[in-house]
Amino acid sequence: MTIDQATVRKIASLARIAISDAEAAAMEGELNGILGWVEQLGEVDVTGVEPMTAVIPNTLRLRDDVIDADPLTGGNRRDDVLANAPAAMHGFFGVPKVIE
């Protein structure tokens, strides 16, 4: 499977990365090189093989329903949450106006 520049642009758009025509052209070659190489995986007979779900045998732990049980994963820290915001406004994150 090879991808063309239109596909490169489509992927870039899905990934929300602006690219110039020159970048799209360069990436076309690079991505095809990498994808062509990973496609050798198709040779492997995986009949009856389950995809890996947990690399080390371990089960999903569930936590108790307690508010702010650990301050590191709890709320009431708006200042910390907004501290690095490029546009913190009146306790909100500001973004360019969105039209829904």
Partner: peptide, 14 residues
């Protein structure tokens, strides 16, 4: 074709 296949191969590697 890509991701599921890769995770199956990963099972084989493990």
């Amino acid at each position: 074709a890509y991701y599921t296949q890769a995770q199956k191969v990963r099972t084989l590697i493990a």
